[in-house]
Design a protein around this nucleic acid. Structure first.
Length: 628
DNA sequence: GCGATCAGAT
DNA sequence: CACATCTGATCGC
């Protein structure tokens, strides 16, 4: 969580990523990306009132951020006050005090941040010096060095202050795997599961609204299936993302929202349960066997009866009562009610079984074969999963592609480029395997990047009018490729690398791209050392799937979630490490002094432990990962 | 009823 | 550990 309060010492009349309190008086607003924790106060009535009373105050952001923001009706009131600024295009912005008429100018340059679609860093230049606000960013080694606009005359600009994302500014994050390595690990894990049968599905537990698009598009490309999401209207003008997504549930890869972790059955705790649907390949007896622990008969120490769950709120009418899906949400504060190891979700037409369970009887899981813990047998024809709304505003209205055109040209800043406001998300996220050594040798320019470096992955959408080729070959795009997918939340991903990584993979990106100026003892090199290093080096996260988890399971979408609950069956197969892969970086940034890369055998050992659901304690001492 | 804030959870 | 949420409870307007 950002502790930044919105204002920079040098330019206190502008506010960035905070829109409450003191920021209500700002002369101009800046939004680095569309994550809620950077939007505090942005839709508050106080700010809305301020807008209504002001003639000039505007919000500046990237075209993609604008697009995403305006997808939500709650922010629609900003529509005429959002001015999108092209990436890497220095733009002069007037800062006017509307009361006194006092005016100041500031030049802002948006630099791709690689955090999520549309995410940028802001470089401000004005009377009080040059300052850089990074927001949340995720740049690979060398990317800052390749940002032309951070430099001047062959060396880094004289930057007075950097307002920095220090999320991983801690020695314990001594090694963080690259985006490519994360992707590779996930791809192979997904492959190892979904290729078993058409009924093996995976579920990507995506916590943030944006930031996983990179993963979606790559998985979609790799396996030739679209990713199931709850809604996709926010990407209506971003065909290169859109084409890889679907709201159709009949796919093997899901990124819909988590089906509620609601344990209906254990809450109801009936004496008996009679499953109405028997999944193919099993029997009534087996299903009952699984459900029995949720019934009262299995809870010998519990009283035989308990009331129904308390009503969360009074029902106002009998009409539409079926829609009160949360009628029994809240557990009765009875000792009876405890977190059961299993969760069961019932759907009118189908039976879905989820057992999160380390406690599920081993023989039960093994005897059924496919009914593994935290798994459920699903079928393409079954409406099996009650997917909820996506992470974005639930009450968002779906906007048709046609209506999206209203944005184009609606607001134009005097310095803005004439090509409208169609977001060019690919500017932020570009496949790095498109970036050749030559491309790295030659500093990017806004012209060279236009079209020729358009990602292959998007080649199928060339005809889209909204699909504008990347203008930016900055490395920051390589991180995020098409979506900045929140790769910094690597704790949400399985951090694995695989020997099966295809040759020509993006891991070769960093090779051979040398830029002398980065090695100068200038603030630029300091940035490499101090800013980029913590995020680009190997992490102990590589050793394990700590938070974010990819849990293969039959039937149920394989879950990228809590490692603590990985049952024994959920072994990470065929995942071998490739620990030296980052050494090819052009910038030999030393690891944290005590850091030591783990040995491959040791990683294997750790993987297996994790797969068995055993805990691993990371000892603070040098390079030791010891079991509990 | 809404928003802010906090706690708790994922 | 941290992230980016989401949900619920409480309080104030």
């Amino acid at each position: 969580m950002s502790s930044f309060m919105g204002q920079m010492a040098e330019y206190p009349t502008i506010s960035i990523d905070r829109f409450d309190r003191e920021n209500l008086k700002a002369r101009a607003y800046f939004l680095s990306h569309c994550h809620k924790d950077h939007m505090k106060g942005l839709r508050a009535p106080t700010l809305k009132r301020r807008l209504e009373c002001s003639l000039k105050v505007c919000l500046y952001c990237s075209p993609v951020t604008k697009e995403l923001l305006l997808t939500s009706p709650k922010y629609r009131f900003w529509e005429k006050r959002i001015i999108s600024i092209e990436i890497e295009t220095p733009t002069q912005i007037p800062l006017v005090d509307e009361a006194s008429g006092e005016k100041e100018e500031i030049v802002v340059t948006l630099l791709p941040a690689g955090h999520c679609p549309g995410s940028v860093m802001f470089l401000f230049q004005g009377n009080n010096g040059t300052v850089l606000y990074t927001g949340d960013f995720r740049l690979a080694k060398g990317e800052a060095a390749r940002m032309e606009l951070l430099h001047s005359g062959g060396r880094v600009k004289d930057i007075q202050s950097v307002y920095l994302d220090t999320t991983f500014c801690d020695p314990k994050f001594y090694q963080i795997p690259s985006r490519e390595e994360c992707l590779s690990g996930i791809v192979e894990l997904v492959r190892s599961w979904i290729t078993r049968s058409p009924y093996h599905v995976v579920w990507l537990n995506c916590k943030a609204a944006y930031g996983y698009e990179y993963l979606f598009t790559n998985l979609s490309e790799e396996f030739g299936v679209q990713i199931h999401v709850d809604k996709l209207d926010m990407f209506r003008n971003m065909p290169d993302i859109l084409h890889h997504l679907t709201t159709d549930r009949s796919t093997q890869i899901h990124a819909c929202r988590h089906p509620k972790i609601k344990d209906f059955l254990s809450h109801i705790s009936p004496v008996n349960v009679y499953p109405n649907v028997i999944p193919i390949g099993t029997t009534m007896d087996k299903v009952v066997e699984i459900l029995k622990p949720l019934c009262r008969s299995s809870q010998s120490t519990e009283p035989k009866y308990k009331p129904l769950g308390k009503l969360k709120r009074a029902r106002k009418t009998h009409l539409h009562s079926e829609e009160e899906d949360d009628l029994f949400d809240d557990p009765v504060p009875l000792p009876l009610r405890h977190k059961a190891p299993y969760q069961l979700t019932l759907h009118p037409d189908v039976f879905v079984m989820t057992a999160t369970s380390q406690s599920q009887p081993e023989q039960q899981r093994q005897s059924t074969g496919y009914l593994k813990a935290e798994s459920m047998q699903t079928f393409p024809w079954a409406n099996f999963i009650d997917c909820e709304e996506s992470n974005s505003e639930s009450e968002e209205e779906l906007q048709t592609p046609a209506s999206s055109q209203e944005d184009v040209g609606a607001v134009t800043h005097h310095q803005q480029k004439a090509d409208g406001e169609v977001p060019r998300w690919e500017v932020f996220f570009k496949r790095n395997d498109e970036i050749t050594d030559d491309g790295l040798e030659n500093p990017p320019s806004s012209t060279e990047a236009g079209g020729s470096q358009s990602p292959k992955i998007f080649s199928d959408s060339d005809g889209e009018s909204t699909h504008i080729s990347s203008q930016n070959s900055s490395q920051s795009t390589h991180i995020s490729e098409q979506g900045s997918q929140g790769w910094d939340s690597q704790s949400d991903t399985v951090l694995l690398s695989s020997q099966e990584r295809k040759s020509g993979d993006i891991t070769s990106l960093n090779k051979g791209s040398y830029r002398p100026r980065i090695k100068e003892n200038t603030p630029a090199s300091q940035m490499e050392q101090n800013v980029l290093c913590p995020k680009d080096t190997y992490s102990d996260l590589k050793h394990r799937d700590q938070d974010g988890k990819m849990v293969p399971s039959v039937g149920e979408p394989t879950t990228l979630s809590s490692g603590k609950h990985i049952p024994q069956e959920k072994r990470l197969l065929d995942l071998s490490t490739n620990a030296g892969s980052q050494s090819s970086s052009e910038f030999e940034i030393p690891s944290t002094p005590e850091a030591e890369l783990p040995k491959e055998e040791h990683l294997h050992y750790l993987y297996e432990k994790l797969a068995r659901g055993e805990n691993i304690v990371i000892e603070k001492r040098k390079s030791s990962l010891l079991d509990t």
